[in-house]
Design a protein around this nucleic acid. Sequence first.
DNA 1: TTGAAAGCGTTACCAC
DNA 2: GTGGTAACGCTTTCAA
Lengths: 343, 343
Amino acid sequence: MKLKEFARQLGLSPTTVSRALSGYPEVSEKTRKRVAEEAVRLGYRPNINAVRLVTGRAGAIGVVMGRSGEFQFAEFMSGMAERLDGEDIDILVSPTADRGLTDEIPLFSRLVTSGRVDAVIVHSPEPNDERIAFLRELGFPFLVHGRSETHVPHAWLDIDNEGAIRRATSHLIDLGHKRIAMINGRAGRTFSLHRDKGYRDALEERGIPFDPRLVAHGHFTDELGFRFARSFLEQSPRPTAFVAGSMMTALGIYRAVRSRGLVVGRDISVIAHDDVFPYLTADNMVPSLSATRSSIRAAGARAADLVLQLLGGRVAEEIHELWPVELILRESTAPPPQAEPRS
Amino acid sequence: MKLKEFARQLGLSPTTVSRALSGYPEVSEKTRKRVAEEAVRLGYRPNINAVRLVTGRAGAIGVVMGRSGEFQFAEFMSGMAERLDGEDIDILVSPTADRGLTDEIPLFSRLVTSGRVDAVIVHSPEPNDERIAFLRELGFPFLVHGRSETHVPHAWLDIDNEGAIRRATSHLIDLGHKRIAMINGRAGRTFSLHRDKGYRDALEERGIPFDPRLVAHGHFTDELGFRFARSFLEQSPRPTAFVAGSMMTALGIYRAVRSRGLVVGRDISVIAHDDVFPYLTADNMVPSLSATRSSIRAAGARAADLVLQLLGGRVAEEIHELWPVELILRESTAPPPQAEPRS
DNA sequence: TTGAAAGCGTTACCAC
DNA sequence: GTGGTAACGCTTTCAA
């Protein structure tokens, strides 16, 4: 049913009906109520594309989904969905074959200039991220999930990766570990760099020399966790502790440790970053996994919230949110064999 | 830049430009080429919302994302994105608080009647699924990922869950197992029912009595895998093999087995269904996990493809695709202790 | 408080 | 092969 037809049935003008439905103040309470009820009864709903054309609003927030199918993505989006429930704003996922960040530029370009979305979210930026410069140039609203080092002003939301990994590493040092390996995320991304820094700073603080042979970068998969851990464990002396970038990485490390006849939480300590997934919980691992923890679902919900604020007129440069990360100690971290805790 | 302005710069009418860009045959090759080049050079792109209004097409496929944040979801969507890359069709994720299937009806209603999407995908149906009846009633294009038992004609794509689990169970029986536990998916969903049937049929075929105390249903989480497995292992006699609904479930089972001092692939056999995730591979588990396997990413890509066909005019009732499932035997399945293989 | 009418930026139908 | 013009369904001035 169209507005015209609906209005005629109510004996009102399209104008009044439109105003009533959009909550304009000048419509009498009585009229508004009647219009609202009849809309439900007769099943009238404005054609979204007509509304969009005339208002210029798209009613959607865009995200670019790469081929890599990162498992954190769904959880973040689910958080967004939670916040957006009832807002009449959708999430538009732009397909891509995902070759690299530069290849995302045309995608954002298409998303933006075709008027499909009101704002976009940029994930996993690099320190000098082209996408940020591009979107800012266009004057298009966007929120960065993560951080860059660009001077281009922009809104961002991030967790304190550096602090989290610094604390995790310090804790291992407190326990007496000296050879601590780190299996980090994809090279070049700011969050990986921040974690690298947290790791190195913690070592330096305690006078433990940094050994590049104990650091690896890559996607968050159990496969890489396993392979890197295996190769680290072949070193002599071998590391006595691991810092892992993700739960999946930790799974791989657990397996690698066991496959060498060693025991996690006794021979080898493991601490990982946990984004909190409903289907994979650190507490249930055997031994339970010590972790730095921050809910990526909550981040998604907050991201949606901030985008809404951005669209409401809040200026981008004042939206900078850095979330602290919890450190949760469980059974997977312990003093190294034949060593006493230092402090 | 608007069409009108762009056309003027080219010295052409908006009509011709529009036709040239949309690939209509009556435009001269020379004109078309020039228009295409200039569009890129001057950065003209049609306003998608105006196009949508006038054509009635939305340029998007809708999916409803629940709060549960199932980990398979991202991989399926990533497959869709892969197929949709370059098609100028987006994926629209409709936020929901996800209380149950019935609650999805208003969401689909909103999606459909507001003209946001051209088609929708319905996930994890029940045998008598309201959503299917509703969408068919509306005459709206949709594809079901999974199966129902409704007589309402509709397009669907599913994997052979029943056959997969029948073969998996039969294999365990071939190895000599008699007490085989099954940790299945959410109760009430057709795929779970099909798996139940495959399991029961395999037992019945070999004259092994069905024991309801060996079957559990629930979300695919490591938590439930662990808890159910623990409780099954407390039975006496305890099961010697497990059939698991997902990789996450299998992780939980592995832990439960180990926590009892037992060894997977020796004391206890495990076989799971693997949707194939880049970040968690059955082959890397220790011991490597025997699995029924079917790529959910491929299903997503094919689903997008079928929706495109649907939109191209192919009738829904002739789109019925049932995919076979591979059975891949690895180290986690072996004869039970103190028993010889039967065949 | 309500209504008439002018757009919003395209596409598609008719002419030419 | 190209161009004028009427839709598409709504919101939003401007008038009453």
